[in-house]
């Protein structure tokens, strides 16, 4: 969508970190690379490709958790030589060790997904990291258009495919929206071959979470149009009214204008005309 531009025209060597987590397929619940996180890696790779031609830029793909997790291989298959893993119990709190790592490594851009596909998926990690590091955070980024003189131009995804342009000073954290470019295919060969650079870190268990109970999501009933009936007649009418979904309405002999009006009314009622 955007013209390819020189990302680091000034020749500053960008240090990019993409944070990855273990994803979960929505249908099968099977472990996979998470959708938004893999887009974060894709964006990191794109910045790398289009950046400093002398190759001064670097991308670190970082995970905090179990290095043996097969879901990580999915990211490696995008063509990574290695994945940096801070080894800790997957149930432990990852923010503290990640924050320490980032503080030491001092990257320019940290890319994450908006929400994890497993666990609490509250989307708080990037905010907590930003708070800890004192960096700005841009949520729901669709693309990073340019990085020049320590300022990045970023496109933020808004609902219904809209975009907002933002300028942000480095270093910053960006959470990558599902509207960002699709991650490239994960290939089996590189996925199997990639190295896991493991660093064992101290972590504290997430005590708050131990008291939580988890269950498969129940289907939430759609809210019904509640009819506040004040009289028996109204209640009777509400109970016996023909349900709307029964069969479709077919307009065959009406004029085109009438037909168009009916469609228009339905579109308006559904709230898709804005």
């Amino acid at each position: 969508m955007q013209p390819k531009q020189s990302i680091a025209a000034t020749g500053n060597n960008l240090k990019i970190v993409s944070l990855i987590s273990v994803g979960k397929h929505p249908q099968s619940g099977r472990v996979r690379r998470a959708d938004q996180d893999s887009r974060a890696v894709e964006l990191g790779m794109k910045l790398l490709d289009s950046g400093n031609p002398t190759g001064g830029d670097s991308l670190v793909v970082l995970h905090a958790g179990d290095p043996k997790e097969p879901g990580l291989r999915g990211y490696a298959g995008m063509g990574l030589n290695s994945v940096q893993v801070l080894e800790l119990d997957p149930a432990a709190d990852a923010v503290a060790p990640l924050g320490e790592y980032l503080q030491q490594f001092a990257p320019d851009i940290v890319l994450t997904g908006v929400r994890a596909e497993g666990g609490e998926s509250s989307g708080m990690v990037p905010y907590q990291l930003a708070e800890k590091l004192g960096w700005p955070i841009v949520p729901r980024v669709a693309d990073i258009i340019s990085v020049e003189a320590g300022v990045a131009e970023v496109l933020q995804a808004l609902p219904r495919g809209q975009r907002r342009s933002l300028k942000i000073r480095l270093p910053f954290i960006a959470s990558i929206d599902s509207a960002a470019q699709d991650a490239r295919q994960s290939a089996y060969g590189p996925a199997s071959r990639a190295m896991m650079d493991i660093e064992i870190v101290d972590s504290s268990t997430d005590q708050l979470r131990e008291n939580w109970s988890e269950a498969p999501a129940k289907k939430r009933p759609k809210r019904l149009k509640v009819i506040k009936a004040k009289t028996a007649a109204e209640r009777f009418k509400a109970a016996t009214a023909k349900s709307q979904s029964e069969g479709g309405k077919v307009m065959q002999n009406e004029s085109a204008a009438e037909q168009a009006q009916a469609i228009f009314d339905l579109l308006l009622e559904e709230g898709v005309l804005r």
Binding site: H25, Q27, R30, R32, M78, R184, Q185, A187, Y188, G189
Partner: peptide, 29 residues
């Protein structure tokens, strides 16, 4: 496919689905 990850068009998606759900369209197993 296995080294370059360059299965064209919907190929990559279909393969991802097969891997994750054991069917090409990504239905719940």
């Amino acid at each position: 496919t296995m080294e370059k990850g360059q299965t064209p068009n919907k190929g990559a998606e279909v393969l991802d689905n097969i891997i994750a759900t054991d069917n090409p369209n990504g239905y719940a197993p």
